[in-house]
Amino acid sequence: MNISHNHRLLFGLALGGFLFLSLLIAVRPAWSVQENNASLPGAVAMTDDERAGLHVFISEGCVACHTQQVRNIDMDKPWGGRPGMASDYAWRTRIDIWRATPSTLGTERTGPDLTEVGKRQASADWQYLHLFNPRTVVKQSIMPAFGWLFTETTSLLPDEKAVNVPPAYRDGLTGTIVPTERGRQLVAYLLSLKQVALPTGSEAPGFIEYTPAKALVAEVAGSVAVAAGPDGAALYATHCQACHQANGEGLKGAFPPLKGSPVVTDANASLMVNVVLQGYDARPEYGAMQAFGDRLTDAEIAAILTFERQSWGNKAPAVPVAFVTAERAALKSKPGV
């Protein structure tokens, strides 16, 4: 019988065909990836706080702008040491009976990727300030301010730390600002985000290099982007500026200034190199600084330090790459480090 005359046949075929193709292309692959998947041996299970923080993350719609997906292409290298793998997401399950599996891979990167934000911005102080109002630490940011994750208090609890918001951003609050429970949970979740190391001996999947890209980037961006050697100013913007600020003055009560700092302008750069390599948390009035030893190469560290030592009125000699290499070697040979 003619298909255009028989409604049962026509719509039976259309719906049956769609169901068949759907099972083939969506349900079966999804089922198979769910069944044949496990977290890496080094993965640490989420704490209750971190899991609650993930729920805050979903509820506030953070996934609209933040991916958690290091693609296997060159340009995603800043976001993780290796491309993401299925096992990185094996922990994801349904949130509860009402809510589905969190869709954390994301489809848009209006803000930075968060795969390794716990390593990149390891300072809780920075995270709180940034959440209270991102403009306090990143002037050009367009992220929403999450004031409702904070509250005012008159007396701090023993394990509580005030968020030192600059006066211009206090939004009319006069008291001591502390995060609410949801705020704490969200920061706990963010700080837990880092890639799990592969088991020793196994080789990480590689990033795909694409050669034409360099040429076209050079064409659009001019010669600046492909200048020889690492660009200290750009690296500073990527790795340091969020705390120490573009003007090198830091934030009062949160992050120390580099402008005019004796550590930075010291003719002997040894202490400065070691702070960057190992991190620093010796001064209670400032937030802790994470280590950059395993995130940056010697040449990159040298470029950043040279930039810092010769900007904002600082006039200290450049740091040679060999000097950073030597300090790193000395650090390794020290017992107990």
Binding site: S22, I25, A26, V27, P29, A30, W31, V33, Q34, N37, A86, Y89, A90, W91, R92, T93, R94, A100, T101, P102, S103, L105
Partner: peptide
């Protein structure tokens, strides 16, 4: 919900 753990969610999401 039966096939949406791990990356299963992402395959279904794209679909």
């Amino acid at each position: 919900p039966f096939y949406q753990n791990g990356l299963g969610e992402t395959i279904i999401q794209g679909y």
